[in-house]
Amino acid sequence: MVEKIRPEDRECPLSATLGLVGDWWTLLILHDAFDGYTRYDQFQENLGVSSSLLAGRLKRLVEAGIFQRRPYQSKPVRYEYVLTELGRSLRPVIVALAAWGNARLAPETRSMVLVDAETGVEAEPVLVDRATGRRVDGPDFVFTAGPAASKPFRDRYAGRPAAVQAESGVHIT
């Protein structure tokens, strides 16, 4: 895959993340993995992707620690691709992207919806701060320079509150 991150953006977590998982095929592979697919042939059949493209994306995801490659058959040796804890932590990102897409469609035109597995009731995920339960998608939350920020990042976020280390974090509910 061609590197899309500008050298000056390498410290930006958004740029780095998009450089790893931000392309169409990678997101679809992850989506299939969250739906239970683990085998190369399953990914290929479901996505209709070329062998070389799929092999390249899976190799990159294994190298990044998002998938673990494990043999499931010895003669001939065949491998499955299982999400690691790091890979599973990407699920809220996929959920949020799908929800964002569905929010722009009329309900009768949605081809896939997120539902409560027990009740079948459609869910509407939102991003909230774990400590306060407040939504983080409004103007009350802003990005600021972190402790390892370079001068360009500190300059970009000058005038914003200084970051205070919290034990909380952000999660999807």
Rank of each mutant, 00 (worst) to 15 (best):
M1Y: 09
V2I: 14
V2M: 12
E3S: 12
K4C: 12
I5G: 05
I5S: 07
R6N: 13
R10C: 05
E11A: 11
C12N: 15
C12M: 02
C12A: 08
C12D: 15
P13M: 04
A16S: 13
T17G: 07
G22P: 01
W25E: 11
L27H: 04
L27Y: 08
L27A: 15
L28E: 15
L28Y: 11
I29T: 13
L30D: 00
F34N: 03
F34G: 01
D35G: 12
T38A: 11
R39C: 10
Y40M: 07
Y40P: 03
Y40H: 12
D41R: 15
Q44G: 04
E45S: 10
E45V: 05
L47E: 10
G48T: 09
V49K: 03
S51E: 12
S51Q: 09
S52K: 11
L54C: 11
A55L: 07
G56S: 10
R57G: 08
L58I: 14
L58V: 06
L58C: 07
V62F: 00
V62S: 00
V62N: 00
V62C: 00
A64H: 02
G65A: 02
F67R: 08
P71L: 06
Q73G: 09
Q73R: 15
K75V: 13
K75N: 14
K75Q: 15
Y79N: 14
L83V: 10
R88W: 03
S89K: 08
S89I: 01
P92F: 10
P92T: 10
V93K: 02
V93M: 13
V93R: 08
I94A: 02
A96M: 13
L97S: 12
A98F: 01
A98R: 09
A99Q: 10
W100E: 14
G101N: 04
N102M: 07
R104S: 08
A106R: 14
P107I: 10
P107W: 08
E108N: 10
T109C: 08
T109I: 06
S111W: 13
S111M: 14
V113Q: 10
L114I: 15
V115S: 01
D116F: 02
D116V: 06
E118M: 03
E118R: 08
T119F: 03
G120H: 02
V121R: 14
E122P: 02
A123E: 14
A123G: 03
A123F: 06
D129A: 12
R130H: 03
R130M: 05
R130A: 14
T132V: 04
T132H: 03
G133Y: 07
G133M: 04
R134Y: 02
G138L: 09
P139E: 15
D140V: 08
F141C: 06
F141R: 06
A145G: 13
P152T: 05
P152V: 11
R154D: 06
D155G: 02
R156Y: 06
Y157D: 11
A158Y: 05
G159W: 07
G159E: 09
R160K: 14
P161Q: 11
A162K: 13
A162I: 06
V164C: 00
A166M: 05
A166H: 05
S168F: 01
V170D: 05
V170K: 04
H171W: 14
T173Q: 11
T173R: 13
T173C: 02
